[in-house]
Nucleic acid binder design. Structure first.
Lengths: 343, 343
DNA sequence: GTGAAAGCGCTAACAC
DNA sequence: GTGTTAGCGCTTTCAC
């Protein structure tokens, strides 16, 4: 049902068109359009009005090729499916606010292979920097990053060797801290509920840290449930029901993220389970959504927004060629909410 | 705490480097790297191994300038704060899957001014097409779109005049349909809860359609609550409490989105309110999160993913220069859930 | 099947 | 303050 077919492929205007329309040389037109100060007010006005009248939009491709500068920062994240990465993106936007840099996003769906191809694609546009999640990359991706000659910031996680700069939290330490809090509160029969994602290295590290502290206390996970895809809130609900009917004497459920934790919490409340008396619950991330639940779920803030803005600042500084090779470890705080009893 | 300062600004490799390393002319290297078939297998292997060994990443800036082709689709959306746009983005990714096109995202935060500057910025990269939310744009933005000479797809909303192609639903009709369902169910004392966003035209149109049907039935909104920012789930909870304590005899609450509707629903359930007997509730969007609530909130699916993939297909087709100027109106279906009683 | 030359639209560098 | 010249790293075109 075509209703009108516009002339795609109209030739875009060039500097030359503005030059002719204003009677000013291309070079000076270029100066005006780049807000350079060494142009007389009269010339500037002539150019600006001609450009506006014609509807000229500069060609950054040509500009970038000529100047060898591209004001783009490649940002590569695993997913948009939960609230965690959009918030990192907002942090990045904030951090880039007062610079000429613009973020460009790519998504990997937690696949190293896709990360590699997205990275290749983005690097081919010669961005001013790269911000990407995690420290685990394919060899080829790592090589591209090392060879790129631009600032690289790996974010979210600090447990491992960074290529250049890194901003994040220690997920292993976060897992340990939560385990310690749970043990201190007196819980001993602990179940784990999480995603079936072998490539979510941060979730894996949290669980490793968690298990480590449990082991030292002679405790180990009694049962576990995993899911993939679907509504996390619903999955949390379903998995909670499943694990509790299979292993009714659990006294704590550790969820790998807040969304499934929230689903579990709602299920428990509906079923009159004494939380946190008989059963404690905890998630991870500190998502805003938790504010709207009947009672607060214990969680740990992953410092998402802050990570984004710090990473952006590092790229901005490195581009303005201050510094480089920075390591920033943020410390998430544990929020016991109302789902962990006092120890 | 710098731990290592890599040599930013290493000169990236060029075709010439690969040419010299492989002993093949630049032109033929270029052919191989673009997967052209008119190259002998022997030459191809030489080139490929040299390129891989060196870690060559092509410069798309130069390529785009020379070929006058850019495989980028500019995607401009209002926000990443709720689940609606990320899902549109996923639809777009899907729709672009089997093409050479790559989406690039920009966010406006519901500001026409920011839309204009994001658009300007993106058009300056000469993308192959633009997908943007809504039909309302500044005059300057509209002029840029019209003059761009590339396929433009306005998405989400079909209530108004499109520049080129359009894919969406009628929000006015959606509002009308919900009002009709509510009236049919026998509710008469209706309250509205929504965002304080004058520039969210789709929410506005839904409310207009809603009021229109109410008026015709001699009914009008009894009370309203507005919010801006913060956790939508929490705001839904707070606004529900506020509106019901101010106007206790309301028998229906119409929320402008599912998130605040979910917050309201949770609040009502906790306070033992008979839903949908004494009080009916409805939201909008059909977000996945609703699947995890104790009872289903009435809502309307905004067809987000489908809109994204259809829009992407239009751009892909127009680029391959089939068609153009397409209008697709999808029909959202009303899901009465368990929060509207049978009429 | 391969190579040489020209040029995409802009900006750096320098001359005036 | 303004103009001229020479590329940026590719791809197009055409010759071989």
């Amino acid at each position: 049902m075509a209703h009108y077919h516009p002339p795609y492929s109209r030739r875009p205007l060039t500097l030359r068109d503005v030059s002719e329309a204003s009677g000013v040389s291309e070079m000076t037109v270029s100066r005006v359009l780049r807000n350079r100060t060494d142009v007389s007010a009269a010339t500037r006005d002539k150019v600006l009005s001609a450009a506006k009248r014609l509807g000229y939009v500069p060609n950054k491709i040509a500009g970038a090729l000529a100047s060898q500068r591209v004001n783009l920062v490649a940002v590569i994240i695993p997913s948009l499916s939960n609230m965690v990465f959009p918030e990192v993106l907002r942090g990045i936007s904030d951090g880039l606010q007062d610079t000429a840099l613009q973020p460009v996003f790519g998504v990997t769906e937690y696949s190293a292979e896709r990360e590699e191809s997205v990275l290749y694609e983005m690097l081919s546009w010669r961005p001013s920097g790269v911000i990407l999640a995690g420290l685990e990359h394919s060899d080829a991706a790592r090589a591209m990053l090392v060879n790129s000659g631009i600032p690289i910031v790996e974010i979210m996680d600090v447990d491992g060797a960074a290529i250049d700069s890194v901003v994040g939290i220690s997920h292993r330490a976060a897992g340990r801290q939560m385990a310690a809090a749970i043990l201190t509160a007196g819980y001993r029969r602990i179940g784990f509920l999480g995603t079936k994602m072998p490539d979510d290295h941060r979730a894996r590290k949290r669980l490793e840290g968690f298990n480590e502290v449990l082991s030292k206390a002679g405790v180990s996970l009694i049962d576990a449930e995993y899911y993939a895809g679907g509504s996390a809130l619903l999955k949390g609900r379903e998995m909670t029901q499943a694990i509790l009917s299979r292993t009714p004497d659990l006294d704590f459920l550790y969820y790998s993220n807040d969304m499934i934790g929230a689903g579990g919490l709602l299920w428990c409340l509906e079923h009159g389970i004494d939380v946190p008396g008989k059963l404690g619950l905890a998630g991870f991330n500190g998502v805003e959504l938790l504010d709207g639940l009947p009672i607060r779920l214990a969680t740990m803030d992953a410092c998402r927004r802050q990570i984004g803005s710090r990473a952006a600042s590092i790229v901005a500084a490195a581009t303005a060629d201050t510094g480089g090779g920075v390591r920033i470890e943020l410390t998430p705080k544990l929020d016991p909410g109302a789902t962990i009893r006092l120890g």
